[in-house]
């Protein structure tokens, strides 16, 4: 009855809404937690104390080095064909503009291919990408590589339509990358609405001029920590089931959804198991990653440090795509392991979440998955998730305590059962 006990405690019992309340307290107290900032380190210290007070074991901080970029003041004003102040969000690692800004004519394109075809027109201009949203992993390429591709054809800056499934004039941010040998130009996201408007304007033959000002600055890497807490295994303590989310966020909104939800349902999974007096055969290890948004920087250093024990990891789990009502578990692993996971998910019949999908993944756990460790993540309402992702709308108001309860129950049942089964998940 362990599964029912976990479900009852999480969804109907005394632990109801605990993960939501804990998350609300943290994000209201600390706010957004951008890599390299004092707020992130404050959040880490709060979590360290909270996990100890919660009675979890082996609570400790593992030091890592993470990037430090700050947004500064930023603005974009369309000067022609009419005055229009635009909402923008600079992209992580972008350089700033000169103090007087960059004022230039705009070239609007809807794809990298169109940019290549019209390369001679791009020199000395601001390239605006109005790429349609297909899905996040495909469309995010424009945010990540937009500056480099524009710089290659002589552009002065790039403005990229926010990678979002829905917009209420809400720009989204995120990390972007430069390339060795290619000039670095400022880059920011604009709203879906402005990108589409400018596309319409140029299709009618209008000339568009924008003045872009960005105070973005990159600083040397700073010290940070991955936060770790455990329920030490009773029989095979050296074997691990890792359950995780990331504590860092972008510097907009509160980072409640990305990835406060994932971090706090992962904590909740251990709290539920502890509250029931359960101790699995293997160690259940909670890791709250730092600097995930910059590309899994904290997680990569954890992997480097711990990969020598890779044979001891039965399953790695990360929730980083929302904790609304999950439709099931995404899993990556051998067919034998998938069959076992399907049996485990059947235990969640009482809350009707039993499906197993492909593509278990997470920026922070992919290192392990690519090295052969089975991996799992929650499949959630991605349309809703990418409406708020990396935008000012990512606040606790988006979250729903009842949905978090259900997500935590799924997370706790899966992590506990895999941690307590007699054998590790097969990899062949």
């Amino acid at each position: 009855d362990v599964a029912k006990a976990i479900i009852n405690l999480a969804v109907y019992g005394k632990a109801q809404n605990r993960s939501y309340e804990r998350l609300a307290l943290l994000v209201d107290t600390v706010g957004p937690r951008l890599s390299g900032t004092k707020s992130l380190e404050k959040a880490i210290q709060i979590m360290y104390q909270s996990l100890k007070q919660d009675g979890l074991e082996n609570v400790h901080l593992e030091p890592v080095k993470i990037p430090h970029w700050e947004r500064g003041e930023e603005s974009a004003v369309m000067l022609e064909p009419r005055m229009h102040k635009m909402a923008i969000l600079g992209l992580g690692s972008s350089i700033g503009t000169p103090p007087e800004g960059i004022t230039a004519e705009v070239l609007v394109v809807t794809s990298f291919d169109e940019l290549q075809r019209r390369a001679p027109e791009a020199r000395g201009k601001i390239v605006v990408y109005n790429q349609p949203y297909t899905n996040y992993s495909q469309t995010v390429q424009y945010r990540v590589q937009g500056a480099v591709e524009a710089a290659k054809v002589g552009a002065l800056a790039s403005l990229i339509r926010s990678v979002a499934s829905f917009s209420i004039y809400s720009p989204h941010t995120g990390v972007q990358e430069y390339q060795d040998g290619v000039p670095k130009i400022p880059t920011a996201c604009i709203t879906v609405e402005d990108a589409e408007m400018m596309s319409r304007m140029v299709s009618r033959g209008s000339r568009i001029v924008i003045q872009l000002k960005m105070g973005a600055k990159n600083y040397p890497d700073v010290d940070s920590f991955n936060t770790v807490a455990e329920i030490i295994g009773g029989k095979y303590p050296e074997q691990v089931v890792l359950v995780s989310g990331h504590l860092d966020s972008w510097d907009v909104g509160q980072g409640a959804m990305d990835d406060g939800g994932g971090a706090f349902i992962s904590w909740e999974a251990l709290s539920l198991i502890k509250d029931l007096g359960l101790r699995p055969k293997r160690t259940l290890r909670l890791v709250l990653w730092t600097a995930e948004e910059q590309g899994g920087i904290g997680a990569f250093q954890y992997y480097q440090l711990h990969k020598a024990n890779i044979s001891k990891y039965s399953l790695v789990m990360e929730s980083d795509s929302g904790t609304f009502l999950p439709s099931g578990l995404q899993f990556t692993g051998s067919e034998k392991a998938r069959a076992i996971i399907k049996e485990v998910m059947n235990l969640l019949q009482p809350i009707n979440i039993t499906q197993v999908f492909s593509d278990g993944e997470g920026t922070d756990i992919n290192f392990w998955i690519q090295a052969g460790v089975p991996g799992a993540s929650l499949l959630d309402d991605l349309y809703k998730y990418f409406s708020f992702h990396h935008s000012r709308g990512d606040t606790i108001t988006v979250m729903d305590p009842k949905q978090m309860n259900v997500a935590a129950a799924v997370w706790a049942v899966v992590s506990y059962v895999i941690a307590d089964m007699e054998e590790m998940l097969p990899r062949s």
Partner: peptide, 24 residues
Amino acid sequence: KSIYRNDISQRTFQEIKEEIAHYG
């Protein structure tokens, strides 16, 4: 890639299913 050595299950899938059923 994987240095997981003892990947040989000692039990049949049916036995594993029964083990998991105990948690429900």
